[in-house]
Design a protein around this nucleic acid. Structure first.
Length: 486
RNA sequence: GGUACCGUGGCCGAGUGGCUAGGCGGAGGUCUGCAAAACCUUACACAGCGGUUCGAAUCCGCUCGGUACCUCCA
């Protein structure tokens, strides 16, 4: 089965064919570390975690690069702008690198909680100033940039005579000229849509480096171009990021690469859609975002309860990465319940009774799951197939359907591959002291059974209710009681 | 204003020409001391109006409504 990927550049799905199989190079725009990660950051990281996991599952050797932006971009494009990290550092009276370290650590902790695998390389912008300066020089030497007052700007007008500026976002240079708003401090630029490759810093700007043009800092599109080239080469397979980065960030990256090397760097552009709150984008500028730590603790006025990392992960995976996803407590609670149901069935697989023959075609589900994932990483359809299997598992358990020993093994393998390995959903139950807990529970349930035999309902119900408070669910069946963590 | 996109049942959310998506919630039933879980049955849908077609949620046009990007933002 061939993998197809929606390529933003072509606005359609394309069969994925890596440049140098079995190797795949993937670059994803990571966070600017000046605040806690919110649900939107999780979606981006998770989208490409899914891509990373599935490509590896298909046998590719993936080099996944996700950057940490620690230089800070200007709050606006005007000369007097201050970068966000520097501003935070000033307000907190800390070194910029203390801010960077603090939020990088917190970002990593959040991503680990969400069971997001680490990228192969996680380069920082501040660690690649030399590479960025080199690339600016190259662009300058090729005539696609100009210097003004110590800053270097990309000459979009010149570039668009030789290349197609706007091919990713569908914009046209003439229209940009008419529509771009006038901002203060842009007198240095030839045109309002030109963007900075290097920016001269004033004295109070804390983060600055020497360059041929001035003491300053790189423009905000440079790091991705320079670092992807360093680690993935001039041309690589996949570049990902949030849809809000499409323009101008990714459009400018394309321009920089073409200007520097005369050819495109990226073969497949992938963009995840936004999380919305009441239909509106969740974002820093709108100040309507909920951080991941707030979700995990439930401490936010918009949250009715705490939501575990796996609930968040499952919730996000229930929507396709290219659709907007609306946040609500109701939707999150539905996801939580659905996931628990999925896990209850998963735990049941190994206890299923086997028979000589099967009444259900299990093998076809494996193909259906592969088909879903190979169709532009369609995790919601994959999850729907897994829920169909949940029904099968429960029916076999109720002896309404039958499965052979081999098919039970296949079934287990499907869940291990697709739920655990590819979707990356893992059980959040504590697995400590399992044997002891099993023994204790058996004892307690025996006592309860005695009470039930004696029609001592008060004791039987007290045991059940008290266990409920510990999130232990008691299930009475014909063959006696069983239990599970909720 | 320009560019891109979206409008699916109570909620979330798949589906790009014909076959039940799925989850949560609702209703009825089986099981049960009761409950839960599970199982069975079931109701509720494709923004509106035209067009193409044997056939459209799916293609085309118009209308209405919404979102994102165009200043940093996943």
């Amino acid at each position: 089965m061939r993998l197809s990927i929606y390529n933003t550049l072509k606005r359609k799905k394309e069969i994925f064919e890596p440049l140098n199989p079995p190797h795949v190079g993937m670059y994803v725009c990571g966070p600017t570390v000046y605040g806690d990660a919110h649900l939107g950051h999780a979606r981006s990281a998770l989208t490409f975690d899914l891509v990373f996991r599935y490509l590896k599952f298909l046998g590719y050797k993936v080099r996944y690069v996700r950057n940490i932006t620690d230089v800070g971009h200007l709050e606006n494009d005007a000369d007097e702008g201050e970068d966000k990290i520097a501003k935070k550092a000033r307000l907190e009276q800390l070194e910029p690198m203390e801010i960077v370290k603090y939020f990088t650590d917190r970002y990593h902790a959040n991503m680990d909680a969400l069971n997001i695998q680490h990228p192969s390389i996680e380069p920082t912008a501040s660690g690649h100033i030399i590479e960025q300066i080199e690339m600016v020089k190259t662009i300058f030497d090729k005539g696609y940039a100009y210097e003004a007052e110590g800053s270097v700007y990309f000459d979009v007008d010149k570039y668009s005579q030789d290349y197609d500026y706007g091919k990713l976002s569908g914009r046209k240079v003439e229209e940009l000229l008419e529509n771009t708003r006038e901002l203060a401090g842009q007198e240095e630029k030839k045109n309002s849509f030109d963007f900075a490759l290097w920016k001269k810093a004033d004295e109070r700007h804390i983060m600055q480096w020497k360059s041929p043009w001035s003491k300053g800092f790189p423009g905000w599109h440079m790091e991705c171009s320079a670092m992807s080239k360093k680690y993935l080469g001039e041309t690589f397979d996949i570049h990902g990021g949030g849809m809000d980065l499409l323009f101008p960030h990714h459009e400018s990256e394309i321009a920089q690469s073409n200007a520097a090397q005369g050819k495109d760097a990226v073969r497949y552009w992938m963009h995840n859609n936004m999380i919305t709150v009441n239909g509106q984008k969740m974002g820093k500028s709108l100040n309507n975002f909920i951080t991941l730590n707030e979700f995990f603790s439930g401490k936010h006025e918009a949250l009715q309860q705490a939501y575990s990392p796996m609930t968040i992960r499952f919730f996000l995976l229930q929507a396709h990465y290219r659709s907007t996803l609306d946040f609500s407590n109701e939707a999150l609670q539905a996801a939580e319940k659905g996931m628990n149901k999925l896990f209850a069935a998963y735990d049941l697989i190994e206890k299923l009774p086997d028979t000589k023959s099967s009444s259900v075609d299990i093998a076809k589900y494996r193909d259906l799951c592969l088909k879903a994932m190979s169709d532009d990483f369609n995790s919601p359809v994959l999850i729907a197939h897994l829920f169909d299997l949940v029904k099968v598992i429960n029916q076999v358990n109720d002896k309404k359907e039958t499965l052979s020993k081999d098919d039970i093994v296949t079934l287990k393998q499907i869940f291990d591959d697709f739920l655990i390995t590819i979707l990356g959903i893992k059980s959040e139950k504590s697995t400590d002291n399992t044997q002891v807990v099993d023994y204790l529970m058996q004892t307690i349930l025996d006592i309860r059974q005695n009470a039930k035999t004696n029609k001592d309902w008060a004791t039987a119900d007290k045991i059940r209710n008290d266990l409920n408070k510990l999130n232990i669910q008691v299930k009475d069946t014909k063959d006696g009681a069983s239990w599970s963590f909720r």
